[in-house]
Design a binder for these strands. Structure first.
Lengths: 136, 136
DNA sequence: AGACAGTACATGCACATGCATCGAATGCAA
DNA sequence: TTGCATTCGATGCATGTGCATGTACTGTCT
């Protein structure tokens, strides 16, 4: 009996996660698309931008990125290819492991990230805080 | 400054939502695929099964379902078409509004839903409770 | 050195999704 | 009744995703 109740709590919790996720991701996608990006694209850019150094060594292995975003390896590969095509990142060889690929943010990519970062923050504030305006 | 902190909290919260959502949905999909269903399919079946009466009037308007699942209208239309093709639901006309479609669970659909419901609950327990065993 | 299992990334393929649009039906107004 | 805006659901199209596989490279074992 108590187990039934606990299950119901989980179901409600899951429904809530689905709802918040769907609404926020949808809005995020809509806002980001105005800058030519999708939500996944921003995730990757954000990983790259928040990297080891903001303007020094900005190289990441694809696998490193894969650990930080919720995408399959193939999806990430194509996404990086799209970002490269758009001139936001560059792909280079690893001298250490020639199977690997080093992904590096271009100036254009860094600029775009800086441009859309406030947009993402605004959406999160709007959708997650639900109006809890942090009035400084 | 305080606003910066609040934003960081939101970002962390969002990252957590993304992680939990991705892991749970992925696992849910994997388990459900063993029964020939996707996560979205189950959502719709669940709406239909939890309907007005469990074995009487099981008709739902497509729009009613649309309000309860996080899918676009077009995706839902195709999803219902797939469910119908698999013999899990039937589509019929509304006498009231001949534009509308009434979706009804078939016995096969109801059986399948009853079969996968424990599977879904198990996944949610495993992924969300994270070991918080409800020991009665 | 040579063979072989394992890893890293790319790609073929199938499929689900969203946007824009379409056709049908409704409701309201003239 | 006719005309028009609106709504409901289906569909064409472009795109993003995952699975399975392919290709290139690494490390190990003999």
């Amino acid at each position: 009996m108590a187990a039934k109740k606990a299950e119901q709590v989980l179901v409600d919790q899951w429904r809530d996660i689905l709802a918040v996720h769907a609404r926020t991701l949808c809005e995020l996608d809509r806002e980001l698309h105005r800058h030519g990006l999708g939500a996944s694209d921003f995730e990757v850019l954000d990983v790259l931008a928040g990297g080891p150094a903001s303007d020094g060594d900005c190289s990441y292995r694809v696998q490193e990125i894969s650990d930080r975003v919720h995408l399959s390896q193939s999806a990430l590969s194509r996404l990086i290819a799209r970002l490269e095509k758009d001139g936001l990142v560059t792909r280079g060889m690893c001298p250490e492991d020639r199977r690997g690929v080093r992904v590096c943010l271009t100036p254009k990519g860094r600029t775009l990230h800086a441009e859309v970062l406030p947009v993402q923050r605004a959406v999160l504030t709007r959708m997650l805080a639900g109006g809890t305006a942090t009035a400084d």
